[in-house]
Design a protein around this nucleic acid. Sequence first.
DNA 1: ATGATACGTAATAATGGTGGTTACAAACAT
DNA 2: ATGTTTGTAACCACCATTATTACGTATCAT
Lengths: 149, 149
Amino acid sequence: MPASCQFATGVHLLALLAQSPAAFRTSNEIAESTMTHPVVVRRLMASLQEAGMAETQKGPGGGVRLSRLPRQITLADVYRAVKTSEPLHLPHTPPNKKCPIGQAMHRILEDIFTGAEEAMIRELARTTLNDVLENAMHPSSSACIPRVT
Amino acid sequence: MPASCQFATGVHLLALLAQSPAAFRTSNEIAESTMTHPVVVRRLMASLQEAGMAETQKGPGGGVRLSRLPRQITLADVYRAVKTSEPLHLPHTPPNKKCPIGQAMHRILEDIFTGAEEAMIRELARTTLNDVLENAMHPSSSACIPRVT
DNA sequence: ATGATACGTAATAATGGTGGTTACAAACAT
DNA sequence: ATGTTTGTAACCACCATTATTACGTATCAT
C-alpha cells in the first residue's frame, strides 16, 4: 500500500477492544482478527497508549484494553495519535532558487495543507468509537454512521 | 517521497502559468522552475488539460497556458484533477472472515474516509489560484492566504 | 516539403516509505 | 522459577511514486 493504513488499523483495534471494555486482549488475538502481525499491533498500541486511549498489562492474563469509554474517543483522537505522515505532501526536491514563485510556494502550500488537514480532523471528530461500534453491530439501522450532536 | 506530491506540483505549475495567462510556456521552462522533469510536467498537464484548466499547443512557439481565469480555478479543482490516491487508506490484507467487527469495518471506514476527504475538498475550494498567486507576489500583506468569501 | 520544436505517452529504472518479521529484553502472574 | 505477554530495535520485502529514456505526433517557419 502506498500511504499508511495505520489510521484504519487503529480504529479497527480500538473497536475490537470496545467490544469488551474491561477485559485485556492480547496482541496475538487482535492480530488474528485484523490479519496483521502482533508486533504491528503493539506498535500501534504504544501510540494509542501514549495518547491515553488504551492501557497495557504485561505477563499472563495481560494484554491491552481501553482506558476511556468508547463514546469519549473520537476518530480525530485516533487520527492524531497514530498518524505518521501528512495527507498532502510537498515535493522532495526544493524549488529553483531563482524562481520567486517557487520560493513563496513552499510557505503557501504548507498553510494550505495545514488548513486542509484541520478540516479533515474536524470531520473525523464528529464520529466517536462508540458510533463505529454501534454501526458495526447494527448495520441495518442506517446506511450512514451516527454522529455526535 | 512517501505519498504523492502531485497536488503540490500541480498548484505550482498553475501558479507559474497564471503569471502570464496569455502566453504559452514550454514544459522545459516549467520543469526548470519546479526542479522536476519535463515529462512529469507534461503528465500533470495532461490531467489539468482534461479537467479544463489548461490547454496546449504543439510545435515551435507552443507550450501550455491556462484556459480559465486564475480566479475561476479553486484548489479543490486542482486536487480532484491530479489526485492519484486517497488521503486515508484501508489495509492491504482483508480482515479475518470469522471476525464480525472486521467484516463491518471495511464498509464503515470507507464511509468515514469519504466524509473526511470531502471535508478536505470543501476547505480547498475556499482558495483560488488567484489567491495563491497574490499571496506569492505580496507575501507581506498577510500571513494567511486570502480566501473566497 | 523539410526541419526544428514541443507535446503525448509507453517503458524502464531508481528511490524511499511502509508493513511484516525476527529477535531479544523487561515485566508480571502463578 | 517459569511461562506469558508487552516493548522495541533491527532488518527484510514489497510496492507506489518519480525520474528518465525513447520515440511518435503535431505544428510552425522557411
